[in-house]
Design a binder for these strands. Structure first.
Lengths: 110, 110
DNA sequence: TCACATGTTCGCATTATTGCTAATGCCGGT
DNA sequence: ACCGGCATTAGCAATAATGCGAACATGTGA
């Protein structure tokens, strides 16, 4: 597996890859994803409770069943889709806003 | 204890349903969803361009192919998942932030 | 014109989420 | 204890997104 010379474009990709991934492997991404999932689950639950609804009631508004809502409110759930989030938001007279914000620089100093 | 009625819970659901859906049918939700999809597609493309990457390069960083990135950057794509957004964000040293905001003017609390 | 890079679309296998029902646990009211 | 409502979990069928390769369209430069 000798690493033959590659094109410049590919090289740039490698550099980026090293910069963002190899430093702290995918743990950073995985951690961030877990946090995001937990956050979304919590937001859904909070929104529902604030509206004074049970899971069954929200499910009916959204057009699904309580078990589905329960799944979505579980912090370990990794299958959040924008479509479902929009359905829930619409049922509660909200809208989903998505933003990409810069992850903290590697100021992981103590 | 209030007098036993038929089904107060179901009634509340109906009221909410009427309040949020029947007034302006699901067009509002559909429109909002279309807008959200377009927004996400644009954000991904903008983020990628800002990073100076081609679709192929981003695909490699994310761990997929260019055709997938192309799909995600298409405004008509409806299949956005939080998992994929997080992967893209992580590859570009960003993180995804999701917020539920009220769709319209505050509903005068009844 | 040719070659190359980029973006786009198509088709299909794989994988995952959704949708649904039923069963279970848990708590509060009667 | 019983019952009712609520939340959670398990299982499975149906639907949808992903993954992947290949081909096509466009533009740019040699």
């Amino acid at each position: 597996m000798s690493k033959s010379k590659k094109s410049a474009t590919t090289d740039a990709v490698e550099i980026l890859h090293r910069r963002y991934y190899e430093g702290r492997p995918e743990r950073l991404a995985a951690l961030e994803e877990a946090r995001a999932n937990d956050s979304v689950a919590r937001k859904i639950a909070a929104l529902r409770v604030k509206a004074g609804l049970t899971q069954r009631q929200l499910a009916k508004l959204v057009g699904t069943t309580a078990s589905v809502i329960c799944r979505l409110e579980n912090a370990d759930y990794e299958g959040h889709s924008l479509a479902m989030l929009n359905r829930i938001a619409a049922a509660l007279n909200q809208r989903v806003e998505i933003r990409f914000v810069q992850a903290r620089e590697r100021v992981q100093h103590a």
